[in-house]
């Protein structure tokens, strides 16, 4: 039975690190898929995926979260992100399979100097994971 204050998160790996996003923001966890590209000038978008007839833009945020040394991203977390005129599915490349977990404790506050897209810290097992606000992160990326 789910406790009233329990909250679900999707945990995604980027190299050695794992991050968390609230599960309600996630639409789908996708297996490796063919990234399609065409000429454009938006630096935060690396291409599009064709998922069940829908065209989904791919925003690679690995360099922001873990730096330029992130290993190859093979899987996609598809989130419903806020854009200027509504929500839009957006694929985030991740390095391995994602997990779903439920947490009944309140997340801790992020470090004072943490970027604004880190909204909290989850204690899971022996470690901690940063909670990412994908809307904020992608908006910041889009603005360069």
């Amino acid at each position: 039975m789910r406790a009233e204050h329990e909250k679900s998160y999707v945990l995604f790996p980027l190299g050695e690190e794992r991050f968390a996003v609230p599960a309600e923001a996630v639409t789908e966890l996708a297996r490796p898929d063919q990234l399609q590209t065409f000429p454009h000038c938006t630096p935060s978008v690396s291409g599009v995926l064709l998922r069940r007839g829908k065209i989904v833009p791919v925003c690679d945020v690995a360099s922001v979260l873990v730096g330029p040394e992130a290993p190859a991203r093979k899987f996609y977390l598809i989130a419903n992100c806020q854009r200027e005129s509504g929500k839009e599915w957006t694929a985030i490349p991740v390095t391995g399979e994602c997990e779903l977990t439920s947490v009944s404790t309140e997340p801790e506050k992020p470090a004072p100097r943490a970027p604004s897209y880190i909204t909290g810290v989850l204690a899971i097992g022996d470690g901690t994971l940063k909670i990412v606000d994908l809307d904020k992160l992608i908006t910041m990326e889009a603005r360069g």
């Binding site: 938006t42 978008v45 599009v48 889009a142």
Partner: peptide
């Protein structure tokens, strides 16, 4: 064109 594309395209 997805809204994620925001530049000249």
């Amino acid at each position: 064109l997805p809204q994620a594309f925001t530049h000249e395209e």
